[in-house]
Design a protein around this nucleic acid. Structure first.
Lengths: 371, 371
DNA sequence: CTGTTAGCGCCTTCAT
DNA sequence: ATGAAGGCGCTAACAG
């Protein structure tokens, strides 16, 4: 039929022939295909395809005609057909715990922008810290044809990773320091940074502590922050009995309540390490409400370096987490993977302590040399 | 060939025959298709397809066999093929200004979760407030086959909307109160809420004001907040000459700098309306740094009701923006659209004033009855 | 209730 | 440098 049409080229185009896929050219029917473009440009669909994918393999004149036709018809290639045929969907998935938490939002924003610049699209999913959800979302992403999935942390259900491997979908772990050299991981050492916090506080003379930690279940990052802090303190001679640790959901209200509770209980400590700036904001408020001055009577340290931390009263000492940079490196890793280079990316970034005004020397009355 | 195979059913399965698509069943090759499942279950590919899409139209026994085969082969349907054939990609796009701004992150999170529950995936793009980028991203999304795009605000390039219409891609405007009854819009009245702020401040006796506004270029929401505030003040008898308005990028640092500048200049005002809580945090810090007490000497109002606003010192009076609710309603609107019901959704939500501790009666010395 | 069949729109050898 | 033709994996008629 196509050859038949071509036998009589010319101007049959404008006649509203009822043949097959003919249609009124008023309101576009969003069904413009390579075939339509080819007809208008009077070339074969193969040439149109080449103009799209390998422009340099096409003569200048043909290319010009095709490009004009494309523009005239507002042709947009059909991604599904492309993906089906070439098994390259140009889609990458990401499963993060939540967007409501600025540190992830920051990374995702950065990741998305760089992927977009490469011509890839990002399908975003949040798992609400649930491994079940993570698995379900992963399956859905595979179905959508993503060629690569960006995950957060080192803890996922065993079958999630197995699924990805079985289906030949690449994956990259972010906020991670997975040991395995065969898996791409991009992150920083939560434990080391937490250790730096411990040293900072110890140097200021603090000897008994409270830590408000996130929920550690299924969350390696939270666990690393906690154990990094407690372990380093131990190394400095502080027994773990002098470190009160509580776990809370990541909200300011929870941080505030946790702090208030310890204050009311008359617990003995002069410094609080918060697993996130979100807690720190809450803890600070609890102190203010209780008439306890920060940093004179109580030192507070956060984590993540969220924007508001600098605008609290006083500005919060914290750990700067390289969210944007992680996004950039992850996007590069994705590009490499999609280009066929399967050597895993291993990146360990810095997450340095940022000392501001919420930490100061321990109040004299509280310095204890022993029990 | 298939019928030929079926002529001799039985156990030829396990023999590593070199026929066509046969392969070792060790490491899955991620190429399991309907055909493979059909063969293992000894049914036609149509039945497998039915089990996937319309399970109740299949006999119980066949369904069981197929489901077993699917599980055994870890079969995952190929979304591209599905999308190509059925022209339903189960993909929806969203283009938002930025994820770094909590109010959008909140809406997107909510939207994504509800879409996911419907079995749809969300492709996320950020435009960085650029209409050019918005257009580019829209094109990319169309190429990916999204059936619906979620946009923010009422201002987009004319060709963006034209493009969507031409390509038969539905769209929904969020954070919007578009007048046109033919377009889906889900939002709240920025102007009205800003007016409520004006009345609140005026009732407290304030008569001269400063407003720190976002950048109004191409941003209807920012413009509405500003004009709503100034207009309502005018209605209350405050001439616009008594309202200093400055525009800044949405950062705390910018809010702080803007406030400091006016303070240093000795400008005469007793209340600041910030177009976002982000500015309010900065403005508050500028006051604190300058030794000006809030709210005794300076009232500050924010917008958006971000989490940290309640934890600032003092807690910030603000406007609660219904981000989560917008996400929910948008997801419902998407579902309706994809189900074929093209009647546009129009939702106007409430964005009520939340009075906290950063606003108080105007200091006596500054109350002026005229010039 | 189940099977057969015809493409969806595109990329990609293989010829020319 | 260009054209012809065969599927990619799946769904939706249409038969039986």
């Amino acid at each position: 039929m196509q050859s038949g049409t071509k036998a009589k080229p010319g101007i049959a185009d404008d006649a509203p022939q009822a043949t097959g896929r003919a249609r009124a050219r008023s309101k576009a029917q969003a069904n413009v295909t390579l075939f339509d473009v080819a007809r208008l440009a009077d070339v074969s669909i193969a040439s149109v395809s080449r103009v799209l994918n390998t422009p340099d393999k096409v003569g200048a004149e043909v290319r010009a005609r095709v490009e004009a036709a494309i523009r005239r018809l507002s042709f947009v290639p059909n991604g599904a057909a492309r993906a089906l045929r070439s098994s390259k969907a140009r889609l990458v998935g990401a499963i993060i715990p939540t967007l409501n938490y600025a540190i992830y939002a920051r990374m995702v924003e950065s990741l998305q922008q760089h992927l977009s610049a490469q011509g890839n699209s990002l399908i975003l999913n949040s798992s609400s810290y649930s491994l079940e959800t993570e698995y379900r979302e992963a399956r859905l992403l595979i179905e959508r044809g993503v060629e690569c999935i960006v995950l957060v942390g080192d803890v996922q259900r065993h079958d999630t990773l197995a699924l990805l491997r079985d289906q030949n979908v690449e994956y990259i772990l972010t906020y991670s320091n997975a040991d395995s050299p065969s898996v791409s991981s991009i992150g920083f050492e939560n434990g080391e940074s937490a250790g730096a916090v411990a040293r900072h506080l110890h140097e200021l003379g603090h000897r008994s502590f409270m830590m408000i930690s996130g929920v550690s279940r299924h969350n390696d990052r939270v666990r690393d922050r906690r154990s990094g802090f407690v372990t380093e303190l131990g190394r400095l001679g502080v027994p773990s009995s002098d470190v009160i640790v509580v776990e809370e959901e990541y909200t300011m209200a929870a941080g505030c309540a946790a702090m208030k509770k310890q204050l009311d209980a008359g617990s003995d400590f002069t410094a609080v390490f918060c697993g996130t700036d979100v807690f720190a904001a809450g803890a600070l408020k609890a102190c203010t409400d209780a008439g306890i001055r920060c940093p004179e009577e109580m030192s507070i340290v956060g984590f993540d370096n969220l924007e508001f931390g600098e605008y609290l009263q006083p500005a919060i000492t914290t750990v700067d987490v390289p969210g944007v940079q992680m996004g950039v490196i992850t996007a590069q890793a994705v590009a490499r993977l999609l280009a066929g280079d399967k050597t895993p990316t291993k990146a360990r970034l810095d997450a340095p302590l940022v000392v501001r005004s919420s930490t100061a020397a321990a109040p004299a009355r509280a310095r204890r040399t022993g029990r």
